[in-house]
Design a protein around this nucleic acid. Structure first.
Length: 934
RNA sequence: GGUCGCUUAGCUCAGUUGGUUAGAGCGCCUGCUUCACACGCAGGAGGUCGUAGGUUCGAGUCCUACAGCGACCACCA
């Protein structure tokens, strides 16, 4: 028999215990030994940064994944959810550098090796806090497979992938313009740059012709870069400048003291290029190949030199120049002053432009010429596009496929090198002798080209996303063909936020399609694109915002800490909130009021359990033993079974069906609402209230009936807990275990079977359908009496006598459930009368009466009616019924409607019209009667 | 500049392929210590579905324009 539950639901008292139990008992450990691949459900947790703390977005992501994993597991699938963390190059390095700064040290002081050692120590101490938080939140991941992207195993796979791409000619090294973060002093990829509209200035600067015969005015937003100008470009079709073609300009302020020009300004050519837009500025554009990607391209076309004038920290780097050593913005100010002084600053205009900011540091990105490693992305993108076009990967919501294509079709080569210390060091060695590069899986001792031993490893590390892009196969020990890889690749689903669609999702698709195409299938046959993809489906979820729809950010101070909120309301309530609010397409405005409501729901479940356990105890005391096998499966009910039993089993099956369907579509909100509505609105509000009457274990009572009622109750309750388990794992586990007094049939409810029901059976089961109809009529009678009582002003405590007129089907259920009606609507006695009795001259013509569908309710009550209130109410009702009647009639009198609308709609409308007419008539009579009383 | 999305009750949001009286939670009003639960029970009020047109027998749902809000992408100095 069940052990007793505490009187009040207290999540903190139960959650830690079960969280620890699930981990310690290895309940979610998944063996890759022989299983049919079709039964595997595999997901990768988007690896949080080691530096990370859990935020609401993680919790939403994890809640959704956990619901799906628990659901699949309970449905009998081999459910595998793999956790891990990302080394997060820049973020982590920054964290440790900050720590060092606090100690008055720096990474430069430590040196590379000692610094990396220090980061590892940091990781050991502080890293992975997020995974501990996950454990507390009960995420049902397989902890035995936890990884870190810099583990030896994964690092080896990263090297392998790099070397293969290099050998395939898909990785190249070269000097190009990249996005440079002058604060962190590293290159960043296009994706790591965010654009922000800012008000700036557009400066018009005069460059005199070298021969003194005139001048050209150029427009620029970054005047400091003029020090690196090597030409001025005009559009060949621009008539204003035809006379200047081929001439030279003297570049102001370019003189360098000790340079080859001996203090004279440089001369630069005027070139013609289509890039120059006659509509913009003055139509003449300065060309600075080392500091602007467009100018770089012009430079290439015209074979111009690339003159770099800034250092890694974006200071002017031009020895001998008066601007040498100045920060770019200081230099800008000084240069503008000097131009002004020389009368060369012609105009300054307000100009709004989108400037690039480094995502991580917030620094304004400086386009910089530097030697970097790139992936030739087009061949990879082609396959990635095909994979989605061919439907090998499905996006939910579907609109994201569009966004994906948009990006993939306009992709640029991927800069994968970073000038950091923390990360996967690029496996390339430079030869001091022949200056060639040796790329190798293992550290070579000599140069592969000239055999010289004077080689040193590349100092750059790889972009973090390079290694995480490989995860769908490297977590299964690629490049080896392991049983796990055979069993679990491609993974089933990826659940993630929109923010990393390009960073991670797109990269995984490209790299997965590329590398896994070469990996034979488990049976040895060649793999096609369909099975090379890293996952078959992608579900993109919303962003969690605060209650005012503001993005949560530290600077705004509106960040909701999931742990805090969990401590306040319990994990189950927070999970349920997120699930219930997670409708596709819209962001979640997280509101605590909602969570409060779901904590109340948990409390409701808790108390339902207490009530049920109490009754099990009572049965036991009466000598009625309930064996667990008796409620293991659906009770056998007949037409003679109590109406509420037939009804609740039918509703349970309907709910199970709906929930499963919703989860298949990733409609967490629908699924959660179905369970909520069923448990609270049907199981508790109706079934429990009715079943109370049946649970009479007294000696004079029908003990068989009581015992049957208890069995059905237990079955439905147990099934409800199972339905609920993926959403609220803690409370469902606690109560389920208690139900079996600590010796449950499985180690966890998470390992028991999920209720399922086939739609066809539901629609064909006559017994259920008629039970639902009958129950609906019973409910109508009960709520009818309640409403009527209230309207008549009958006091809550007062028992009244009622007469009910009802015919045909409704009559049956009402006649056999008089006791239920009496109890649930506070009635002293019920008498079934004829419809004619309320009519003028009828036996009860003077009683207040009311119609509820096919049921008429008369209340026998002496208290005088509140005339004005009743008059107002009836007038309102009358208006409503007349509206209904008019709208129905309008359509029914339209021949086009009758001709074209489907029969079902017409019939429904006719029924509605006749009902409205009856109601209207009755209301009129009631008003008449009221006036007589008055 | 390009692309996509949103606008439904006081608040937060549902509303499947157009179809009978547009739903939920919270909040609000009224009444209840009914022996599981006041984190509760019962009853109730509240919506010209952003605006203006159009298609249709029928529009919250489809089309067009407009207004407001938001997101993403983008190498025009």
């Amino acid at each position: 028999m069940p052990h007793e539950l505490q009187k009040a639901y207290d999540p903190t008292a139960i959650e830690d215990r079960w969280a620890a139990y699930w981990v310690n008992e290895h309940l979610f450990h998944t063996d890759s030994s022989p299983i049919p691949a079709s039964h595997a459900f595999t997901m990768l947790l988007p690896p949080p940064n080691v530096t990370g703390r859990l935020h609401m977005g993680h919790m939403l992501n994890q809640t959704e994944m956990d619901i799906l994993t628990r659901w699949h597991r309970m449905c009998g699938d081999l459910a595998l959810w793999i956790p891990g963390t990302d080394h997060a190059g820049i973020a982590t390095q920054l964290m440790v550098e900050r720590q060092l700064a606090g100690e008055g040290s720096s990474r430069q002081q430590l040196g590379r090796e000692a610094f990396i050692e220090r980061v590892w120590q940091w990781k050991q101490h502080y890293g992975g806090a997020i995974l501990d938080q996950m454990k507390r939140l009960g995420a049902s991941v397989d902890w035995s497979r936890e990884y870190f992207t810099m583990d030896d195993r994964l690092s080896a796979a990263v090297r392998e992938a790099f070397v293969r791409l290099y050998e395939q000619g898909l990785i190249y090294r070269g000097k190009y313009i990249v996005n440079w973060d002058p604060v962190q002093q590293t290159a960043v990829s296009d994706l790591e740059v965010t654009h922000e509209e800012r008000k700036g200035k557009l400066y018009h600067v005069r460059y005199p012709l070298a021969d003194g015969s005139g001048s050209i005015v150029i427009a620029t937003t970054r005047p400091e870069t003029m020090l690196g100008d090597v030409a001025v470009a005009v559009n060949p079709a621009d008539d204003r400048y035809t006379a200047f073609h081929g001439k030279k300009l003297r570049l102001p302020l370019s003189a360098v003291n000790d340079g080859p020009n001996h203090g004279k300004d440089r001369e630069i050519p005027i070139v013609t290029d289509d890039w120059a837009n006659p509509e913009f500025g003055t139509g003449a554009v300065k060309v600075t190949p080392a500091h602007d990607p467009n100018d770089f391209a012009i430079g290439e076309r015209h074979n111009l030199p690339q003159l770099s004038i800034m250092d890694a920290a974006a200071r002017i780097d031009l020895p001998g120049s008066p601007y040498h050593g100045l920060d770019r913005y200081v230099a800008r100010k000084r240069i503008l002053e000097d131009l002004e002084a020389q009368g060369l600053l012609v105009d300054t205009k307000e100009h709004t432009m989108a400037i690039g900011l480094s995502q991580r540091s917030g620094a304004v990105v400086e386009p910089r010429l530097s030697t970097q490693w790139f992936i030739k992305i087009q061949p990879l993108a082609d396959k990635a596009i095909e994979a989605v076009e061919e439907g090998h990967i499905k996006f939910t919501p579907a609109q994201y496929a569009k966004t994906y294509f948009e990006w993939m079709r306009n992709i640029h080569d991927w800069c994968i090198s970073r000038q950091l210390w923390w990360g996967h060091r690029i496996p390339a060695w430079h030869c001091a002798a022949c200056h060639k590069v040796t790329v190798a899986r293992e550290t070579p001792s000599t140069c592969a080209h000239c055999g010289d031993s004077g080689i040193t490893q590349e100092t750059d590390v790889l972009d973090t996303w390079f290694s995480s892009g490989l995860l769908p196969f490297t977590v299964f020990d690629w490049p080896q063909r392991t049983p796990a890889l055979n069993a679990f690749y491609p993974t089933s689903l990826l659940v993630t936020g929109f923010d990393i669609l390009f960073f991670w999702v797109a990269r995984m698709i490209m790299l997965g399609c590329h590398f896994m195409l070469d990996m034979p299938m488990p049976d040895g046959s060649p793999r096609t694109l369909k099975d090379a993809v890293p996952f078959r489906e992608v579900y993109i979820h919303a962003l969690v915002r605060d209650a005012d729809r503001q993005k949560m950010s530290k600077t705004k101070g509106n960040v909701i800490d999931p742990i805090e909120i969990v401590q306040k309301y319990g994990t189950d309530a927070v999970r349920f909130t997120l699930a219930a609010m997670a409708s596709p397409g819209t962001d979640i405005a997280f509101s605590e009021a909602r969570t409060e409501g779901y904590r109340a729901f948990a409390n409701k479940i808790w108390n339902a359990a207490r009530f049920i356990f109490m009754n099990m105890e009572r049965a036991k005391e009466a000598g009625i033993g309930i064996h667990r096998s008796s409620f293991a499966s659906e009770p056998e009910l007949t037409n003679r079974s109590p109406i509420e039993a037939l009804w609740i089993v039918s509703r349970l099956n309907r709910c199970a069906h709906d929930v499963n369907l919703a989860l298949e579509k990733y409609r967490f909100d629908e699924a959660a609402n179905f369970v909520y509505q069923f448990f609270w609105g049907e199981f508790c509000d109706w079934y429990l209230e009715i079943v109370k009457l049946r649970l009479d274990f007294g000696e004079t009572s029908n003990q068989d009936a009581a015992s049957a009622a208890l069995t059905t109750l237990l079955y439905v309750f147990k099934s409800s807990l199972q339905l609920l388990a993926p959403f609220m794992p803690f409370i469902s586990e606690e109560i389920w275990q208690a139900l079996y007094d600590g010796t449950p049939p499985k180690k966890s409810i998470a390992r028991s079977d999920y209720p399922r029901y086939v739609a066809r059976e539901l629609s064909e089961n006559v017994q259920y359908i008629s039970a639902e109809e009958a129950m609906q009529n019973l409910q109508r009678a009960i709520t009818g009496i309640r409403t009527h009582r209230k309207e008549l002003g009958v006091e809550e405590k007062t028992l009244v006598a009622v007469k009910i007129a009802c015919g045909g089907n409704p009559g049956g259920v009402i006649r056999t459930n008089l006791e239920v009606i009496q109890k649930l609507s506070k009635v002293s006695e019920v008498e079934i009368v004829s419809f004619d009795d309320q009519k003028p001259g009828g036996r009860y013509a003077d009683l207040a009466w009311k119609t509820f569908g096919p049921v008429d309710i008369f209340i026998v009550y002496e208290k005088p009616i509140d005339l004005p209130a009743e008059r107002e109410r009836l007038a309102k009702k009358l208006e409503q019924y007349e509206k209904m009647l008019i709208s129905a009639d309008r359509q029914l009198q339209n021949p086009a409607f009758l001709a074209k609308a489907p029969e079902k709609i017409v019939a429904g409308l006719k029924k509605q019209a006749s009902e409205a007419a009856t109601l209207r008539q009755e209301t009129l009579e009631a008003i008449e009667k009221l006036e007589q009383l008055a």
